[in-house]
Amino acid sequence: MPRNRAPSRQTRNVLDALLSQPAEWRHGYDLGKLSGLSSGTLYPLLIRLHERGLLEAKWVEPDRPGRPARHAYRLSNAGVDFARSLQEDAAPEAEAEAGEALA
C-alpha cells in the first residue's frame, strides 16, 4: 500500500497498541488507555484506518448481562504489515537517537 505521508505520532501509538497483540479484539475505551489517546483523537483515527482497510471492526457480545454489544477492533493483515513496516522504519532512527544519547 502506498504511503503518501508519514503517519502522525498518534496514529503510530494506535498502531503500536494494536500490534502488541494483533489477534486480540480491543474496545475503543481500552485502546484509548493503551495508546494514551483521548476519544476525541482516537475515533477519527480508527475511522480513517478502517476506511483505508488497515483496521477490522466487529460487534462483540457483552461479557456482562444487561450491557450492550460493543464495537471491537484489531488490525487487518494489511494493517499488521503496515504497522510492522513503520516499526522497522523507526528502529534505526531510535537506535541512532539512543547512540547519540549515550555518546
Binding site: 475503543g28 475505551y29 475515533y43 450491557r67 450492550p68 460493543r70 464495537h71
Partner: peptide, 8 residues
C-alpha cells in the same frame, strides 16, 4: 459504537 461504548 459510540453509544454502546458509552453504555458500557
Amino acid at each position: 459504537a459510540v453509544l454502546s461504548e458509552h453504555a458500557s
